[in-house]
């Protein structure tokens, strides 16, 4: 069966005076079917936002390289013209909630305008219909009806986040990309938004790509998890696999750094600095920070190794154990 979304070897590099920044450097993953939520987890600067933007074809002027395959129901979206991509993919196939909802709204238009405008640029759209749907969605995300006439500066951060979410649902997208949808919110609002997302998954069968730097948060919602590091993906698997038996040393550190309420052990911090994406470390990009680094790590790029079940990881340790066992 063809997966809903199949991303293969996606690359997005930015041109800078120092040379190209390899923010997304050949990543592959898939979302199997509607209702599946895939989490992309990684530290700041690992290229998560860039990857989401690459999927939506939101590109800055200084793009140096942009290629790969994005197969949606088997059709390569990368091959579409800009105009078709805009009309057919954006907000229909994939909608996105951007990182930083605070600034995602136009300050001089009221909420109703902004939520409905995508629908209204379609020919034959009815304004009344659009507003009715907007009200419904706004209600769904837990906002009062009269919010439709309000302006962004009158709303709290949590309210804006919900508006942005409602806005993303207006065209009934098949896939929802959420880029750190809760990172600017306080804990209780964060929980509300997470519940909302769960509800969407449950009730609407919405497929999602949930981007976060917080693996604990991902565990709350995701079916599968992909770990990003330095513009690449280093591990993927089901939530249970990755969380309980992480194979890649970086994933292990990531999980160890989650503060645990009932555990006396101090959360660990990952030592060292994130890799420079202009001139990434040779071999395994994690090797300068890895406790287990050994002879092939700084020269040979580790391939994907199967780690049982759906789990895969890019670490020479796996190759070793395999070779031995």
């Amino acid at each position: 069966m063809t997966p809903l979304l199949d991303v293969r070897d996606l690359r997005l590099h930015y041109e800078t005076p120092r040379g190209p920044v390899r923010a997304v450097d050949g990543v592959s993953f898939e979302i199997g079917s509607p209702g599946e939520v895939v989490g992309i987890v990684g530290e700041s600067g690992s290229g998560k936002t860039s990857m989401a933007n690459a999927l939506m074809r939101i590109l800055p002027r200084n793009v140096a390289r942009y290629d790969g395959e994005v197969l949606y129901d088997g059709e390569d979206l990368m091959a579409l013209t800009d105009e078709r991509f805009r009309k057919e993919v954006r907000w229909r196939t994939m909608a996105m909630v951007f990182q930083g909802a605070m600034s995602s709204l136009n300050p001089v238009l009221n909420v109703g305008r902004q939520v409905t405008e995508r629908v209204l640029v379609e020919s034959g759209a009815s304004k009344r219909e659009a507003y009715r749907k907007a009200e419904e969605l706004l209600e769904l995300v837990g906002l009062p009806r009269d919010i439709i006439k309000r302006y962004p500066h009158e709303l709290s951060g949590g309210m804006k986040q919900r508006v942005v979410l409602a806005m993303a649902l207006m065209m009934d997208p098949r896939i929802l990309i959420l880029d750190e949808p809760t990172s600017a919110l306080d804990v209780s609002v964060q929980a509300q938004v997470m519940n909302l997302l769960k509800q969407l998954k449950r009730e609407r069968g919405m497929a999602m790509l949930f981007i976060t730097h917080d693996i604990a948060l991902a565990s709350d919602l995701c079916d599968r998890v992909v770990v990003a590091y330095g513009g690449e993906h280093v591990e993927s698997g089901t939530l249970a696999e990755v969380l309980t038996a992480p194979k890649h040393p970086y994933t292990q550190k990531l999980i160890a750094s989650i503060p645990r309420l009932h555990d006396p052990a101090q959360p660990e911090f990952i030592p060292g600095r994130p890799p420079d994406l202009v001139d990434p470390p040779s071999g395994c990009r994690f090797h300068p920070r890895c406790d287990f680094a050994f002879e092939p790590c700084d020269s040979d790029v580790p391939p994907w190794f199967e780690a049982g079940g759906a789990q895969h990881a890019r670490c020479w340790l796996l190759g070793q154990s395999k070779g031995r066992g």
Binding site: I58, R86, K87, S103, S104, L105, N106, P107, V121, M171
Partner: peptide, 26 residues
């Protein structure tokens, strides 16, 4: 360069609308 312009584009609005409503108007 503001974020809401990127959002407007991601929504799939035609470029003319983006420029008029989300850049010039602001």
């Amino acid at each position: 360069q503001e974020d809401h312009v990127m959002v407007a584009r991601a929504k799939g609005l035609p470029e003319g609308v983006v420029v008029r409503r989300h850049i010039l108007r602001v």
